[in-house]
Simulated scan of single mutants.
Amino acid sequence: MVDPTSDLGEDVDEEDAPECATCGTKIVQLPSHRVVSWVEDGRAHHRHFCSEECLADDDEL
């Protein structure tokens, strides 16, 4: 996967793009892209969302 901190649209192919944790949409050049990050047991975790609506609908946060 491409570095999740890179700017969207910078050489991100759909094949390498992150998927929305709620609906599974590939996130390529979406200005509504949201990432939630947290540290658990000394490891960094993150989840990508294509929109505020998908973020609000996530059951695991």
Rank of each mutant, 00 (worst) to 15 (best):
D58F: 09
E60V: 11
V36E: 10
W38T: 03
G9N: 08
G24M: 04
H45K: 13
A56C: 03
R43F: 02
H48V: 06
C50E: 08
D11E: 14
H45Y: 15
E10L: 12
M1H: 09
V35A: 13
T25M: 13
W38A: 02
C54S: 00
E52T: 04
D41Y: 00
D13Y: 09
H48T: 07
G9D: 06
D13S: 15
T5E: 14
T22G: 08
L30E: 14
D16C: 08
V35S: 13
H45M: 10
R43A: 01
E15D: 14
H45S: 09
D7W: 09
H46C: 08
D41N: 11
H48A: 13
D3T: 08
H45C: 09
R43G: 00
V28F: 01
E10V: 15
P31R: 10
L8T: 04
D7K: 15
R47H: 09
R47Y: 06
E10S: 11
A17C: 05
A17K: 04
G42C: 02
E53W: 00
R43H: 05
E52W: 00
Q29N: 13
T22I: 00
D3G: 09
L61C: 01
G42R: 01
F49Y: 15
Q29E: 15
E60G: 03
G42S: 04
E60N: 07
A21N: 14
L61G: 12
D11A: 11
D16Y: 07
C54Y: 00
C50W: 08
E60H: 05
V12P: 06
L8M: 14
H45F: 15
D11G: 15
D41G: 01
C23D: 08
Q29F: 00
H46V: 02
E52K: 13
E52I: 00
P4V: 08
S51F: 02
L61I: 03
H33M: 05
D13P: 04
D11H: 12
C50K: 06
H46K: 07
I27Q: 06
L30Q: 09
E15H: 06
A17G: 04
V28S: 02
G9M: 08
V39Y: 00
H46Y: 13
P18V: 10
H33F: 14
S32G: 03
R47S: 15
E19N: 13
G9K: 05
A44Q: 10
S37M: 08
R34G: 02
P18G: 08
E60T: 14
V2D: 10
E40P: 00
G42T: 03
P4T: 03
H46F: 11
T22L: 09
C20M: 01
P18D: 12
W38S: 10
D7R: 12
A56N: 12
D11L: 12
S51Y: 06
E60S: 11
E40Y: 02
F49D: 04
C54M: 00
R43M: 01
L30N: 09
Q29M: 05
T25N: 03
D13I: 07
D11K: 12
D7V: 10
